[in-house]
């Protein structure tokens, strides 16, 4: 298949899912509350979930947007599942993605365990708190908060810069004591570069907020981890991205357990989503090598914004 052919297929698939979703989403608005015998066969919803998350996986890779931040807004916006279960599934999906990439990132020394651990201590503890708050608050409030947060994330994605090799004049005291520094290899030249970080305390404080948010909404926090590690603390972009992904595996583990122990995990939702997203991301990576349609990022952020608005309206009761 030609390059444009592949792009075409992807766009059609994306469009189809959007139509399907919108159609079903609105059809289900009219569904009476629990107890109604659904006329659709039992496998329709899981299958739809599989297809949608598959496209989501491809879109995440091609669009440069984490699958973990797409799942909860889009699934909760367009599927009839309750937000409690969507968040539980979302955390497990983000967790699985981070676990899959983790070994490679660690072995290649792209993710820094030394950098991750102090951060993880903060983020995972507060993710627990975030999860507990998120499950205690009334769903309406969480929907509104989710909507606002998603819109904020969209803005952040459009605005945030990235710094390949930030200028860190001097490592700060705490990162020196903890020996958080290292070397990495520049991608194009193969040149070996030293890295160190600063503003560690400020970074750790921000990770409190990131942890709470991850736990409360069931979102993968890559979009937040990377700017804090890269722009604030000054880790090179390569190390930041890799460490951020690895960090997710720890943060999401703690939040996932809270949701799991609360009963927010329905296998019929979680497993098709897992298979879909992982399958989609592998296909996305293959497509990436062939062509990267720049338009995809705009479409994805657009859908995310749309989902954010939907969450907001759901929460406000429209």
């Amino acid at each position: 298949m030609t390059k444009t052919g592949k792009q075409g297929v992807f766009f059609i698939a994306l469009l189809l899912s959007v139509i399907l979703l919108a159609g079903n989403g609105y059809a289900n608005e009219g569904l009476v509350a629990a107890g109604t015998e659904s006329s659709t066969a039992w496998w329709v919803w899981p299958l739809l979930l599989l297809v949608v998350t598959f496209v989501m996986g491809i879109a995440a890779v091609l669009g440069g947007v984490g699958g973990g931040v797409l799942f909860v807004p889009i699934i909760s916006g367009f599927f009839p599942f309750h937000l409690d279960f969507v968040r539980g599934a979302g955390l497990l999906v983000a967790l699985a993605g981070a676990l899959a990439a983790g070994p490679g990132l660690l072995k290649m020394n792209l993710a820094s365990l030394r950098l991750a651990m102090p951060v993880a201590l903060i983020a995972s503890s507060f993710a627990i708190i975030g999860a507990m708050i998120g499950l205690a608050l009334p769903t309406q409030i969480v929907q509104i908060a989710l909507g606002v947060t998603i819109l904020g994330i969209c803005v952040l994605m459009l605005v945030a810069k990235k710094s390949t090799v930030p200028d860190v004049p001097k490592a700060d005291k705490i990162s020196s004591v903890l020996r958080i520094y290292g070397v990495y290899q520049e991608a194009s030249t193969g040149e070996i570069i030293d890295w160190k970080i600063h503003r560690t305390w400020q970074g750790l404080v921000l990770f409190i907020a990131i942890g709470v948010m991850a736990g409360m909404f069931g979102l993968g926090a890559g979009w937040a981890n990377v700017p804090v590690l890269n722009l604030l603390m000054g880790a090179p972009l390569k190390i930041s991205v890799a460490t951020s992904k690895f960090l997710l595996s720890i943060t999401d583990t703690s939040a996932a357990w809270i949701y799991l122990n609360k009963g927010c995990v329905i296998p019929m939702m979680v497993v098709p989503s897992l298979i879909g997203i992982m399958g989609g991301s592998f296909v996305g990576v293959r497509l990436l090598k062939v062509a990267k349609p720049g338009l995809v990022r705009w479409i994805v952020i657009g859908m995310l914004g749309f989902a954010g608005l939907k969450a907001l309206t759901k929460g406000l009761g429209f």
């Binding site: 569904l31 629990a34 659709t40 599942f81 409690d84 499950l135 122990n261 009963g263």
Partner: peptide
């Protein structure tokens, strides 16, 4: 049963646990 699960995933988790008689935790 697989054809009944769709009745429950629209409920909040508390209602779900109550209606299905599933206990949370381990």
């Amino acid at each position: 049963p697989v054809d009944e699960i769709s009745k429950y995933w629209t409920l909040s988790v508390d209602e779900y646990l109550r209606t299905t008689n599933i206990h949370a935790g381990w």
